[in-house]
Amino acid sequence: MSEDSAVVVDGLTKRFGHIHALNGLDLRIRTGEVHGFLGPNGAGKTTALRIMLGLLHGDGGHVEVLGGHPFRDAVALHRRLAYVPGDVTLWPTLSGGEAIDLLGRLRGGLDPRRRAELVDRFDFDPTKKGRAYSKGNRQKAALIAALASGVELLLLDEPTAGLDPLMEAVFRECILDERAAGRTILLSSHLLAEVEALCDRVTIIRDGRAVESGTLTRLRHLTRMSVTADLAVVPQALGELAGVHGLEAAGTRVRMEVDAEHLEAVLRVITESGLRGLTCQPPTLEQLFLRHYQGHTS
């Protein structure tokens, strides 16, 4: 299919008994981008990743990973990609260092210099036995094995869930390094700040279906801006203007959400009302996200 896409998913469905885990998921990850895969627990992120890895069969739809079939070509494809599961378990009888080396070698080899550097950066003790590690440390082991393998595509399933803020910062640096080195990264997460800081494009998934996909800029453009203004006189009709939502007025200060396409008209009214101060912010990813999920529950 398209040469510039590392992962192409079209209309993917997957059922577990009566539960529809994926309901026609579409996803396109361009080569060289960091793609955020956002959704709450149970939205189908992990199922989608497992199908991309050939660990599960999709029921319907089309999936292509690095130009190959995820199930049929699994062994060849897995040389070119690395996966970090959301819940890493290590072998009780193997040390963390042994697990890192083993996973790297099974993938076709590790860069020892990069491995040593990552062990250092993540402040990881490789001599403990599997069971002695905390959740965050088990995740570090899987991350080090993945990042030191120098593969084209990294599939990361909520990789920072157990990391402390310091290690999360190290993780972000590493992801930016990988991107600079031309790797493609799929970062599944429910941490919006992380996605916002790292990702070029985002796909939001709900109930096994992509509800939004695009660059952050574009997603924001499609949605509302937060406007806070300090006015001499608050115009009577401000709340009734087209595109204005959730107006709050406290004395001379007003706050509201404005649809992007009506922003110009609304600002014109505001500037004619004795404008003394104005902040106009694009929505955070959090607000984007909440809108999709609140729309669902109401």
Binding site: W91, T93, L102, T127, K129
Partner: peptide, 26 residues
């Protein structure tokens, strides 16, 4: 208590069979 292990794997630990051996040998 769990003992400590080596910081890196022996060169032989590189195949599913060797992994299985490590898991079963005890």
């Amino acid at each position: 208590a769990a003992r400590r292990g080596p910081a890196s794997a022996a060169p032989s630990l590189r195949s599913p069979l060797v992994l299985a051996w490590r898991l079963h040998r005890g």
